[in-house]
Computed example of a mutant assay.
Amino acid sequence: MSNLHYPQFCALARAAEIIGERWTLLIIRELLLGPKRFGDLLDHLDGMSPTLLTTRLTALIESNMVRRTALPPPVNAQVYELTETGREIQPAIRELIRWGGRFLFPPVLGDTFEPDWVLLGLDAIAKRSPAPEIRVGLVVTYGKKSAGFTVAGSDSGTTIQKGLTDCRGTLEAPFDAVLQIIGKSVSLQDAIDTKRVSVSGAMSPVRKLPLLFDLADRRRTNPHTQIDERKRT
């Protein structure tokens, strides 16, 4: 179990004992994106030692948050994945991401970034109310790395899935440009004209991408969610 203990009979204290250790929330972030091998986790947790990762995973397993399982042949690899109890933390993670977004910019020198993380970030600002029934491809780039997603609207809201599936139009851009477009602080045409983004396929569904998120609405009511253009990278 975790070495962290608060001598209080309080559900929040118990939750903090499980997820409050350094790196634990980021391990959960990785596993919310899917099962991971030990080496994959280590690659995406830059600065964490193998010994500490083992300690944190052991504590999460003992708390029934994570389990070890083996992938079937021909892979034959051991991976870590969230249990049902572990997956139930996702709504709380979503709200933490929404809250933490106001502190995201400017990037800190030396920070690492994985385009795969964008899935959870977009899910945190996705519409939970009826949205236009469109499918938009989104390719988030970072140096030589990239990750593709399908953003789909429906009567039940917006969903984001990894991979490009049946998308009439696709936006390719770095993450900060994506946030500016869906937050309506920069128009799609201006971003194209300055060569910060590119669009393939039909333009009309890509223009509707901001309608699949609530970021623009949140910015109108909370100025702290704005991205400072002067500090943008």
Rank of each mutant, 00 (worst) to 15 (best):
D214Q: 13
Q161I: 14
E62V: 08
A173K: 05
I182F: 14
A202V: 12
D214C: 10
I160Q: 03
V75A: 15
G34V: 02
A191L: 08
P74W: 04
D155Y: 07
R232D: 10
R168Q: 14
T141L: 07
V206H: 07
A131H: 09
L26Y: 11
L96D: 07
Q78F: 06
W23D: 02
L26P: 07
L53C: 03
G110R: 07
E88V: 06
R196S: 14
Q161L: 15
L32I: 01
T58D: 11
P106F: 06
R230V: 15
F213D: 01
L41Y: 01
R220D: 11
L104A: 15
V108C: 07
E30H: 09
R218V: 12
V66D: 03
I160W: 08
I192M: 14
L120F: 07
D176P: 07
R14Y: 11
P174K: 01
P223Q: 08
T54C: 05
L138K: 04
D166H: 14
L119H: 03
P223I: 09
W99T: 09
F103V: 08
A131T: 11
I28T: 01
D176I: 15
I181T: 10
P106N: 04
P223S: 09
T194S: 15
P91L: 05
A216Y: 10
P50N: 04
M65F: 03
L32P: 00
R29E: 10
A15F: 11
T194I: 14
Q226I: 11
A11Q: 11
L60G: 00
V75Q: 13
D116K: 05
V136E: 02
S146R: 14
W23I: 01
G153K: 05
V79I: 08
V66Q: 01
V140C: 09
V206Q: 06
K195N: 12
E30S: 13
R94E: 08
Q161E: 12
L188M: 08
S200N: 08
F113A: 09
V199W: 00
A173C: 07
R219M: 15
S146N: 13
I125M: 13
P174Q: 02
A15L: 14
A16Q: 11
R219H: 09
K195V: 10
G153M: 04
R56C: 00
T83K: 02
A11S: 13
I28L: 15
Q90Y: 13
L42V: 00
D155N: 11
A124K: 04
I61H: 04
L32W: 01
P74Y: 03
L138M: 02
M1G: 10
G110L: 11
R67A: 08
V136F: 02
Y80F: 13
Q90G: 10
R67D: 13
T85I: 11
T170Q: 03
D155W: 07
T194A: 14
D43S: 09
D111S: 10
Q90I: 11
N76R: 14
P91K: 03
T194G: 10
N3K: 12
R22P: 05
L33K: 04
L82M: 03
F175C: 04
E21I: 06
R218F: 06
S200I: 00
D228V: 09
D46R: 13
F213K: 03
V66E: 00
L82C: 03
I182L: 15
L53T: 00
